[in-house]
Amino acid sequence: MSARSNILNKLRAGLAGTTPRPDDFNEGLVTRPWQYAPEDRIARLRSLMEAVHTEIHQLTTEEWPARVQELLESRGLKNVLYAPGTEHGKQLAEHWQRAEPRPELLVYDRPIEEWKEELFWQVDASVTGTVGGIAATGSLVLWPDRHDPRLMSLLPPLHIALLKASEVEDNLYGMMQKQNWSAGLPTNLLLVSGPSKTADIEQVLAYGAHGPKELVVLILEDA
């Protein structure tokens, strides 16, 4: 007998003569306490994310590439990783061509194996998109794919994330329903609610444990 059948048989024996419990999921319990007026959503998200050391800028869709340049230059960073296959990546590349800023634009266009060491140690910053934000918990929703790979938002010490103001939902449940997550999830779906942190020594909060030391969110208002 395999371990699988042994385990399943034991569990089935334990349930003999019982019926499954009914599904009495009450969505009100996870939505009602977490609803906001449209004008309060961004404020809520901001205050929660800022409370955990996230830097937030609200600006128009046209302005953001220049802001990325400023963020990098003010920190004296030498490069930034971007996703050329995305809409936002194209916009950033256009700006870089036009303004010719000092920081180098790095492309994530080959499998990790080909440049792992460089990505781990040499990349200063990254710009990624998001598919939305959650006001209740102050979270970004990242949906990595071939254009916006998983490690982009993890390895560089500075992570700059773009969030459309119109894509901020009240709560996780609402986000799940709206984007119909249960119909199909990507390889890795992520909720990110601040820069990497730890309180493992004396419960003293320290940022930049293993992931980004800094998270900057650019909230884009539709112009």
Partner: peptide
């Protein structure tokens, strides 16, 4: 209210993915 990361993994790297 939530941890910094909520990591939902549904499979290995797909053919066209980079990491």
């Amino acid at each position: 209210p939530i941890t910094t990361y909520v990591n939902m993994i549904s499979g290995p790297r797909k053919a066209d993915e980079l990491d």
